[in-house]
């Protein structure tokens, strides 16, 4: 005979226990972000307590051992490198996505997509190494020293391009086919169809891809560290060597102590805040998970 209801009911609380223990794991995962922010803040606090926030922008130069914390040159370098990379990666990425969806024969499109996936998975240290051994000497032949903002822009562009391309490709694939049929029925040219129907319809997804790429470019450390030259200065030309905020952390963390160490954590907080804004912007744009 199958066990009695009373016997079965003893199994029921097992599901509640399961739900509670899984919920605890989930709470732990949610706590990681809190821990990250808490520890960055805790380590930054000794410095943040003593000096005005604005001094990080107004101090004359970066001499943390002499209590001079001007991050402006590095902030400029970070923004310039990321912006330049996006300027290249956004059109090229979009072109790659259009190529996959509307130009390449299906077999070629599949291989191309696969290649983009592989490109996205190449470690940043390998990009950096390749930039250092191939790209930097090339630029140096043209305009020494080679390790420069330009090298950082080019390598970053190649790194974040797959993000733009793959996100745009998905967004373009989600455009209803009958809209395109409609455009074809109106006798639109291929250019008219792409710029008049397909791209506007997929613009939110494309924009989200560009924001994600921006987050990736801002946060990138190794590749930039290896090719940008690492001189703390506001760049006046593309060929100037520069140091980004992320590279600065990687370079100085090894020996920094006291307020100097704290200043690096302030940099980390600032970076996290920048990226957080971009991620929230992306979520708002795509409406994913229904929270903003």
């Amino acid at each position: 005979m199958i066990s009695s209801p009373n016997n079965i009911s003893s199994r029921w609380p097992a599901d509640q226990r399961l739900a509670v223990s899984l919920g605890l794991a989930a709470a732990l995962v949610a706590a990681i972000l809190g821990l990250v922010v808490a520890f960055l803040s805790k380590e930054s606090w000794p410095l943040l307590r003593d000096i005005e926030l604005t001094r990080f922008l107004t101090d004359d130069g970066w001499h943390p051992t002499e209590q001079s914390y001007g991050m402006m040159p590095m902030l400029t370098a970070t923004l310039a490198a990321s912006f330049g990379a996006l300027l290249l990666a956004a059109p090229l990425g979009l072109a790659s996505a259009l190529f996959c969806r509307f130009y390449a024969p299906p077999a070629l499109a599949r291989s191309y997509r696969r290649m983009l996936g592989l490109l996205a998975g190449i470690p940043s240290v390998v990009f950096g190494f390749w930039g250092l051994t191939v790209l930097v000497p090339l630029i140096a032949r043209w305009e020494p020293p080679g390790a420069s903002l330009l090298a950082a822009v080019l390598i970053l562009a190649l790194m974040v391009l797959p993000t733009v391309a793959l996100t745009s490709d998905t967004a373009l694939g989600a455009v209803p086919a009958n809209w395109l049929h409609g455009a074809a029925a109106l006798g639109l040219s291929r250019r008219g169809m792409l710029f008049g129907v397909a791209i506007p319809a997929a613009r939110r997804g494309i924009f989200a891809g560009i924001l994600l790429a921006a987050a990736r470019a801002l946060g990138e450390t190794m590749a930039v560290l290896m090719v940008a030259g690492n001189v703390v200065q506001s760049p006046s030309s593309l060929f100037d060597p520069v140091r980004t905020m992320t590279a600065n952390i990687a370079l100085e963390m090894a020996y920094a102590t006291g307020d100097h160490r704290a200043s690096l954590f302030v940099t980390g907080l600032l970076l996290t805040a920048l990226v957080l804004l971009l991620v929230l912007g992306t979520l708002r744009n795509t409406g994913e998970h229904g929270h903003a």
């Binding site: 209801p5 079965i8 009911s9 029921w12």
Partner: peptide, 8 residues
């Protein structure tokens, strides 16, 4: 109520 028993 024993929901699993009910559904059985």
């Amino acid at each position: 109520i024993d929901l699993q028993g009910l559904r059985r």
